[in-house]
């Protein structure tokens, strides 16, 4: 083994370990703030895997979009809804977890079997390496032009939808009298709209 392949192997093993252990931490840790920061670590390790695969553009996009936008959004959501609450106990919670872990292990076994037994057509054509970014740009503006434009429409729709869903002045007028109600009063004396049947 040359020193280059050894370095690549070590980088791959370390990044894979970070991805797997970080994902386990995201799912299993009880404090959700730790989970959110670990999720950022997982995203960065995945970006490292992309760099190992000669995909510098997608790695940069991964860092910008996932770590810079989605993770920050999740942290903001945690701060907005982070009320200490004792979750009600559910019957058979442990059984449920074990059964679902069994189901996931079965899914994993299936995936491993597919990965191992499929005759992949390797080695494929020579990788373009550093030209990948230019090649992605060509794809985006020739044969993938329609999905590219649709993605922009999708992002616009998601932005408007998020604003509409998260804004607060849904009850601008009093429902009963039809008068314009004071928004501050509504916010303070706010009863939950959906009555909880379980209580």
């Amino acid at each position: 083994m040359t020193i280059a392949t050894t370095t690549e192997l070590i980088c791959f093993l370390v990044l894979s370990a970070v991805v797997v252990l970080g994902a386990l931490g995201v799912v299993l840790l009880s404090n959700i703030v730790y989970s959110a920061f670990l999720l950022g670590g997982v995203f960065m390790a995945v970006a490292g895997l992309y760099l190992l695969l000669n995909a510098s553009f997608v790695a940069a996009a991964q860092i910008l979009v996932y770590v810079g936008a989605i993770n920050v959004l999740i942290l903001f959501a945690i701060m907005l809804v982070n009320k200490r609450e004792d979750l009600k106990a559910i019957a058979n919670l442990t059984t449920r977890r074990i059964v679902s872990a069994g189901v996931c292990a079965g899914l994993f076994a299936l995936l491993v079997r597919v990965v191992v037994t499929t005759p992949w057509s390797l080695p494929g054509p020579a990788a373009v390496g550093e030209e990948a970014t230019a090649r992605i740009g060509e794809h985006l503006f020739t044969d993938y032009l329609l999905p590219f434009e649709l993605a922009s429409v999708l992002l616009l729709m998601a932005m408007i939808g998020a604003i509409v869903l998260a804004r607060r002045d849904v009850l601008a007028t009093d429902v009963v009298t039809g008068e314009v109600a004071d928004q501050g009063l509504i916010e303070k004396a706010r009863t939950p709209l959906l009555i909880n049947r379980a209580d």
Binding site: L53, N54, P123, G124, A126, A127, A132, I136
Partner: peptide, 8 residues
Amino acid sequence: SFVDGDLI
């Protein structure tokens, strides 16, 4: 990277 290296 491995199967579709030229068209990515």
